[in-house]
């Protein structure tokens, strides 16, 4: 079980890292043009989004993992502008960053950076949250650990275990159709791999909790309307 939780945490980590405040339009003042507007045509492919985009923050940092050991050391981080971030993320101060430390910081940052009094995030209770508690059947019962943050009225349904990006996050990040397609393909891959790893019994437990499949109605995640009435307005 421990092992299983671990591997799931790996699946979930990038999700949490992406749980950022919605970068949606704020109060538009006189000066604020559209993001990346301006003379876009003049500088296609230059600067950040061309290269940085499409990668999770963890992926961006792991590019620096020169020896490929899955851990980022201070020496490897050749971009001095990221030293600050490194120090903040290096929770135990050992001069190396594990992906867990990164995920933890990104989660904290996104919470700290969210607009005060803004829409509740209700996602990402810290990396320890998921799987930290007693094994509480993922389908049943109130969401434990996962989504343990300041959930608020918008509190997400716990996603199916192994979900790379829950629907709500996809909405929040406003993924393009192309991105959604790629994500769906990746999800399929993850699901297939998971199927191979787990025995049928384990898969059942994972999906429906220790009680097994519910006798009435479908699994919880399928039923019940999503409470989205109070989602922030989108443009």
């Amino acid at each position: 079980m421990k092992r299983l939780l671990f591997s799931m945490a790996v699946c979930i980590a990038p999700t949490m890292a992406l749980a950022q405040p919605p970068g949606g339009p704020g109060s538009r003042g006189g000066e604020q043009g559209g993001p990346r507007g301006g003379n876009r045509g003049m500088q296609n492919g230059f600067g950040g989004p061309g290269r940085n985009a499409g990668q999770s923050p963890i992926e961006k940092l792991m590019q620096f993992d020169a020896n490929g050991d899955g851990v980022l050391s201070e020496d490897e981080l050749s971009d001095p502008r990221l030293q600050n971030l490194f120090k903040r993320a290096d929770a135990n101060g050992d001069g190396t960053l594990t992906q867990y430390e990164m995920a933890a910081m990104f989660t904290n940052q996104s919470q700290a950076g969210s607009r005060p009094g803004g829409p509740p995030q209700g996602f990402g209770g810290g990396p320890g949250g998921f799987g930290g508690g007693p094994p509480q059947g993922f389908g049943g019962g109130p969401p434990q650990g996962f989504g343990g943050g300041p959930g608020g009225p918008n509190g997400f349904q716990p996603p199916r275990p192994g979900t790379i990006l829950p629907e709500q996050l996809i909405e929040m990040l406003e993924l393009t159709d192309a991105q959604r397609k790629k994500l769906a393909a990746l999800q399929e891959l993850v699901d297939k791999r998971m199927e191979k790893i787990l025995t049928e019994e384990q898969a059942q437990k994972l999906q429906f909790g220790p009680q097994g499949p519910p006798h009435e109605g479908g699994p919880r995640r399928e039923g019940g309307p999503r409470s989205q009435g109070d989602r922030p307005p989108r443009e």
Binding site: G33, G37, G47, G48, P49, R51
Partner: peptide, 12 residues
């Protein structure tokens, strides 16, 4: 290796 500086709007 260095990450490219993100491109941001020129503004009006």
């Amino acid at each position: 290796l260095m990450l490219p500086t993100p491109r941001l709007t020129e503004g009006p």
